Amino acid sequence: MSEATYNIGEGPATRVSLSLPEGTAEAIRARVGKREFSAFIAEAVERELRGQLLDEYLADYESRQGPVSEVVRQRARQVFDEVFAEERECPAAS
Rank of each mutant, 00 (worst) to 15 (best):
E26D: 15
G33H: 10
T14E: 15
V45D: 02
I41T: 02
L18M: 13
V32F: 06
R31K: 15
I41N: 01
V16G: 04
S19P: 00
I28F: 04
V45N: 01
L18N: 12
E36N: 15
R31D: 11
G33M: 11
K34H: 09
S17H: 09
A27W: 04
S38R: 07
P21Y: 06
E26S: 10
A25E: 05
E22F: 06
P21N: 07
V32Q: 03
K34E: 15
P21F: 07
R31Y: 05
I28E: 00
R29W: 04
R15I: 10
V45Q: 04
K34F: 05
A30S: 14
A42G: 03
A44R: 14
A25W: 04
E22A: 15
I41A: 04
E22R: 07
G23V: 06
S38P: 00
E36R: 15
A25T: 01
I28N: 01
K34R: 14
S38I: 00
P21A: 08
F37T: 05
E22Q: 13
A39K: 15
A42N: 09
S17V: 09
F40L: 03
T24H: 07
R29N: 12
K34L: 05
R31Q: 14
R29E: 12
R35F: 00
A42F: 00
E43G: 07
V16Q: 12
R31V: 02
F37D: 09
V45M: 10
E26I: 06
A42L: 08
L18T: 07
I28R: 01
T24I: 15
F37M: 07
I41D: 02
A27E: 10
A30P: 00
E43S: 09
A30F: 03
I41M: 06
K34A: 09
A25Q: 02
A44D: 07
V16Y: 13
R31F: 04
T24K: 07
A27H: 08
R35H: 06
T14C: 12
P21Q: 11
A39N: 10
G23A: 08
V45A: 14
S19N: 13
A44I: 00
F37Q: 06
V16S: 09
A30C: 05
E36P: 00
S19F: 05
